[in-house]
Write a protein that binds this DNA or RNA. Structure first.
Length: 356
DNA sequence: TGTCCACGTCT
DNA sequence: AAGACGTGGAC
């Protein structure tokens, strides 16, 4: 068994060394000695989205906040602004809180043990293992979606890897497979294999460097592991978006600190209630004219934003509580704004009478 | 074009 | 424990 693991690790690592030469973005990030701060930020970003998507955000983020000390001092709104477009905005907030915790409780140094790293907000078992192994060369296992699939196939585990019992088993196996040297590279190679060869659909077993160790391939099960998850209904939510103009400025409001798009700014957005939008308008508007609809798909919910335009009469300020601002369309980019709201802003900008 | 789904952490 | 979180990519 141990012998198998060593051969497995050796085959995978030499494949990875060759594959890595074709990934121009990776070597500066991961070649030793990696900057722990870079690893922290990149792991937190990579948790949620594709590499190609993250790169521009990564450079923008790290360029502006190049150290933990700077991130800890930064305004939450500025951090959200840099994160804008990535989704999962709570992670940006957690990253800032983590930086503050590092400054206050770890003497300004990112801790190197999995145990201490896990205490940071937003850093769970996976991220802690990735940082400990990649940035600090510790022998710590990781288990992300890719590694889960790779190990399930390697051991021909047909059960659903998302269940706690199988998770436990997979973490143990991930630790067992880990070689004594180059743990970070080994972990990276497992993820890379899952991303490029051992893919969810149509795995390329012919090109796989560890196919001779794979139980699923031997049993002809590779493309049936892991099992698909149960489909769930996604309800449709309708929202009325009131784009209210006064002179050359538009009224925007900040979303609550919790929930979806927390802390981000938007045009006045209300549930599509039977009584109509006029009942909840923060300032008086005689008439709204249709602007258009924006559809937005989340994992478990669909949104339809029904955008309308109106002109505020007089100089009154919003009559209801909450942070409101009057901004020019150009100034919107100074605020963190969600994707669908940005689309609405683009629709306004395209209108001839949109008043810039 | 829409519909489904991943990606880890938190609650 | 099961669902929230958001976007882009696959189909």
């Amino acid at each position: 068994m141990v012998g198998t693991s060593i051969r497995f690790a050796t085959s995978l690592l030499s494949w990875y060394d060759r594959a890595r030469r074709n990934l121009p973005w990776r070597p500066p990030l991961l070649s030793p000695p990696p900057d722990p701060y870079f690893v922290l930020v990149s792991e937190l970003m990579l948790q949620q989205t594709q590499v190609a998507t993250v790169i521009p955000y990564f450079h923008r983020f790290v360029g502006h906040l190049p150290t933990i000390a700077r991130l800890a001092e930064a305004d939450e709104q500025d951090v959200l602004k840099l994160w804008q477009g990535l989704g999962y905005y709570s992670r940006a907030r957690n990253l800032r809180r983590a930086a503050r915790m590092v400054m206050e409780e770890f003497g300004g140094r990112l801790p190197s043990s999995v145990e201490a790293l896990t205490k940071l907000p937003g850093v769970g078992r996976y991220t802690a293992g990735a940082i400990a192994s990649i940035a600090f060369d510790q022998k710590a296992p990781i288990l992300d979606g890719n590694v889960m699939r790779v190990i399930c196939r390697l051991d021909a585990i047909e059960a659903d890897p998302r269940t706690p019992a199988v998770q436990k088993q997979l973490w143990l196996r991930a630790a067992e497979l880990l070689p004594d040297a180059r743990a970070g590279d080994f972990n990276s190679s497992l993820m890379e294999l899952g991303a490029t060869v051992c893919t969810p659909r149509a795995p390329n077993c012919l090109l796989c460097p560890v196919s001779k160790h794979c139980q699923a391939l031997a049993a002809g099960l590779a493309d049936r592991i892991p099992p698909p998850r149960k489909a769930k209904v996604t309800p449709v939510e309708r929202r009325i978006v009131l784009c209210i103009r006064r002179g050359d400025r538009w009224l925007i409001e900040q979303r609550p600190a919790k929930g979806r798009w927390a802390g981000l700014w938007q045009f006045v957005t209300r549930p599509d209630e039977p009584r109509g939008p006029a009942a909840v308008t923060p300032v008086k508007v005689r008439r709204f004219t249709p602007l258009g609809e924006v559809r937005h798909q989340l994992t478990h919910r669909s949104y339809v934003f029904d955008a309308r335009v109106g002109i505020s009469l007089g100089n009154e300020e919003p009559r209801i509580d909450g942070p409101f601002r009057w901004v020019r369309l150009g100034e919107l980019s100074e605020h963190p704004v969600s994707k669908p709201q940005l689309e609405i802003a683009a629709m306004l900008a395209r209108r001839t009478d949109g008043a810039s």
